[in-house]
């Protein structure tokens, strides 16, 4: 498909750009590993005191953290830096070039830059989930693997849509710094499975800003049992929020007044 070809070019060109800047991949890896190591150390210490936490065992928790890492890395690989740049593009007027190309403008503006270095970070996540599966004696069937991959894609879609919708506020406000802060807080809450939370918080994390749900479903699909209803709801939720993001984009463009010359 045409958009797949386009994305391949985005990746190629981002790789070329990286070569020009000589990023230290080793450092990226170490930093990412450090962040998740801290989480792991904490969990390890916690589990010397208890056997399960809200129904999650130690290695199931490790798996969850590894999944978080993978999704977070794919997030920075693809949409993140592009969305971060949107308010600046609106201010400078560079957005105009995106609107006038015969390509879906939301696709172009969300995915144009690729951060290949993030794939290295994803590697730590993969290592971690492998470790968790082996140490925890958990079996990975083909079916579960498929469910897992599908849910990772949909978790990304949820993250993207929420962040994108919030970023579109910069069409009307000048700055949109709060978006990244909200995202940061949601991630902070989501470093643990959503089962930990109760009541109001759980509701927000599951249905309003569903980072929590997204991450939890992905892990559950492999290390626990997941009910058909919950999984389907998750998929529907993911596509619904995406549809909202498309609507918000169209609406924003319609009322776009563009930077003055």
């Amino acid at each position: 498909m045409r958009y797949v070809r386009l994305y391949r070019i985005f990746i190629e060109q981002s790789l070329m750009k990286m070569a020009a800047y000589k990023i230290n991949f080793g450092l990226v890896f170490v930093t990412n590993a450090a962040f998740f190591s801290v989480q792991l150390i904490f969990m390890h210490l916690v589990f010397t005191n208890v056997d399960t936490l809200a129904g999650w065992t130690k290695y199931e928790m490790f798996f969850y953290i590894g999944t978080f890492n993978i999704i977070d890395s794919l997030w920075t690989f693809g949409p993140f830096f592009n969305l971060l740049a949107i308010p600046g593009m609106i201010r400078s007027g560079a957005l105009d070039y995106y609107i006038t190309k015969p390509v879906n403008s939301q696709f172009l503006i969300s995915l144009r830059n690729v951060d290949p270095g993030s794939l290295i970070s994803a590697l730590t996540g993969v290592i971690l989930i492998t470790f968790a599966l082996i140490q925890g004696g958990m079996e990975l069937t083909f079916g579960k693997a498929v469910l897992y991959v599908v849910s990772i894609f949909h978790a990304l879609m949820i993250q993207y849509s929420v962040y994108f919708i919030l970023t579109c506020s910069s069409f009307w406000l000048v700055k949109a710094d709060f978006v990244d802060s909200i995202h940061g807080i949601l991630c902070y809450f989501s470093t643990r499975p959503v089962d930990i939370y109760k009541g109001f918080i759980r509701f927000i994390l599951s249905y309003v800003l569903p980072y929590g749900l997204a991450l939890t479903v992905a892990s559950k699909a492999v290390v626990k049992t997941i009910h058909f209803a919950e999984y389907t709801l998750f998929l529907i939720l993911s596509w619904s929020i995406f549809a909202v993001s498309v609507g918000v984009w169209r609406f924003s463009l319609k009322h776009y007044s563009s930077a003055s010359s």
């Binding site: 070019i9 060109q13 070329m16 750009k17 800047y21 560079a94 105009d96 190309k101 015969p102 390509v103």
Partner: peptide, 26 residues
Amino acid sequence: ITMGQKNQLWWDLPAIDSFQLIKEIY
């Protein structure tokens, strides 16, 4: 459309690469 000094092409890459992208987009 071109607008003044606002660049459409990739800043860090040679023009030829930007043109490849344009070729694909159009």
